[in-house]
Simulated scan of single mutants.
Amino acid sequence: MSSPAPSPVDTDTDPHHGRFVVVPAAYVFLLRQGDEGPEVLLQLRRGTGYMDGHWAAAAAGHVERGETAYDAAHREAREEIGVSDLDLDFVTAMHRTRGGEPIDERIDFFFTASTWRGEPRVVEPEKSAGLRWCALGGLDALPDPVVPHERAVLESLRRGTTTPYSTFGFDAATRDAEAPEEGRSR
Rank of each mutant, 00 (worst) to 15 (best):
M94F: 00
T68M: 09
D176I: 14
T112F: 01
R78W: 05
W133T: 09
L30K: 00
P4F: 10
E79L: 07
L44I: 04
E105S: 08
W55E: 00
L154V: 05
Y50T: 10
T174C: 02
V40H: 04
P24G: 08
M94V: 01
A172W: 01
T48P: 07
S2I: 08
S3E: 11
G118N: 01
A59V: 09
M51R: 10
P145V: 04
R75G: 03
D108P: 00
R186F: 12
S128V: 14
D144M: 07
D87V: 06
P120W: 01
F20K: 07
W116T: 00
R45G: 02
L41I: 07
D144F: 08
A93V: 06
V91H: 00
R186T: 11
E178W: 06
R32N: 03
V9F: 03
V9G: 09
S128K: 10
D87Y: 00
Y165V: 07
R65H: 10
E178V: 04
V23G: 06
V122D: 06
D89V: 01
A93P: 01
G169P: 03
A113I: 07
Q33E: 13
D12R: 15
V123Q: 14
S166I: 00
L88N: 00
G47Y: 06
G160Y: 05
R96Q: 12
F29H: 02
P180S: 10
S128T: 15
V40A: 08
E105K: 05
L41K: 05
D89S: 01
E80R: 05
A141E: 15
P4H: 05
T92R: 09
A93G: 14
G100F: 03
F168H: 04
R98N: 09
E36T: 12
A25R: 10
P4R: 14
E79N: 12
F111E: 08
A135M: 07
A72H: 11
P6E: 11
G160R: 05
P180A: 03
P4I: 12
Q43M: 11
A152R: 12
A173D: 07
W116Y: 06
R117K: 06
P8V: 13
M51E: 15
A57M: 05
T163L: 15
E64W: 10
T174V: 01
A179M: 08
G118V: 00
L31K: 03
G100R: 10
L136Q: 01
Y27A: 11
F109H: 15
R96E: 12
V22Q: 13
L157R: 01
D71L: 14
E182H: 15
R132D: 07
P15V: 10
